[in-house]
């Protein structure tokens, strides 16, 4: 296998167990995942399905109970704690739902601080931070504190910060959750561009259906395991994720099949549908 084809991220058999005895929770159960350079992978799933736990383990923030995670050449799961910061600063960029900018630093300083951690300081760091922010169309906001920036601007600063040390892998936790649809779309487009133009791998954890068209792959994480997206459906009434094969109820309306978590949800859907038909 050549370097170009080698996955940026390789996850094998990752299991994570929290607690013991009666409070034991298996958050992840033998998860496998490969992410290639330039690929955008969207991981969806209901709340509590293990998405954030998986993202934390991929980002070397959390040790798995079993399994391995390899980022580039480094198997991060066997690394000692004191070596992990170097992996996080150079090989991974994080984009968070709440932006997580440092409130006392300006937009430029928020990017500079990450460069400083990687040993780039002074005018070189300032210049690189300026370029990154200008690339995010924030040239007029360089010296603004986060409190003076809009949500979209904050998230663009966060993306610039994530890209500061040119990591191979971007990990995004609900990057559009706190943004309106237009700004959220802009953020996703930018992430797509980063993958296409710079060859970065992007893993996005989100509930946002609007991201789907921009992803190369959409994975469904449920109950700690990846399931085939094709076999999953969302109950149109309560929004719960359910497997089509084992769904307690389903209904065909106007040539489309709807799956429900219970007969109650199905009845509610039917009543609404009848009322809608009567109105029209």
């Amino acid at each position: 296998m050549s370097d170009v084809e080698r996955p940026v991220l390789t996850v094998r058999g990752v299991t994570k167990v929290f607690g013991e005895g009666a409070s034991r929770v298996e958050a992840l159960r033998g998860v496998d995942l490969d992410v290639d350079p330039g690929e955008v992978v969207l991981i969806m799933g209901p709340s509590g399905s293990g998405k954030t736990t998986l993202l934390s383990i991929i980002g070397a923030l959390l040790k798995p109970t079993a399994g391995t995670v390899r980022i580039g050449e480094d198997e991060v799961t066997v690394m000692s704690e004191h070596r992990l910061p170097a992996v996080r600063i150079r090989q991974v960029g994080f984009v968070f739902q709440d932006f997580n900018l440092l409130s006392a630093l300006t937009a430029r300083e928020n990017v500079q601080v990450v460069l400083d951690f990687a040993g780039v300081s002074g005018s070189k760091a300032r210049q690189r931070a300026t370029e990154l922010l200008e690339g995010m169309e924030l040239g007029q906001r360089l010296d603004f504190l986060p409190e003076k920036l809009s949500g979209g601007e904050k998230q663009r600063v966060a993306i610039a910060r994530a890209m500061a040390n040119d990591p191979a892998l971007l990990l995004c936790d609900e990057p559009t959750a706190n943004l309106d649809s237009r700004i959220g779309h802009d953020v996703v487009v930018r992430l797509r561009e980063i993958a296409d133009q710079r060859g970065k791998s992007v893993v996005i954890v989100s509930h946002d259906e609007r991201i789907k068209p921009h992803a190369d792959r959409v994975l469904w994480l449920d109950d700690g395991v990846f399931r085939e997206m094709a076999t999953m459906a969302v109950d149109p009434v309560c929004g719960m994720a359910i497997e089509r094969e084992t769904a307690p109820a389903h209904l065909e309306v106007d040539g489309e099949t709807y799956y429900f978590c219970s007969r109650g949800c199905m009845r509610e859907f039917q009543e609404e549908h009848v009322q809608k038909a009567q109105r029209s």
Binding site: P85, I89, N100, V114, F117, A118, A162
Partner: peptide, 16 residues
């Protein structure tokens, strides 16, 4: 503290 957590997450070592 939460910002220190962010700094740790994005790669700051304890020493820094």
């Amino acid at each position: 503290l939460s910002e220190y957590g962010i700094l740790k997450a994005i790669g700051a070592s304890n020493a820094r």
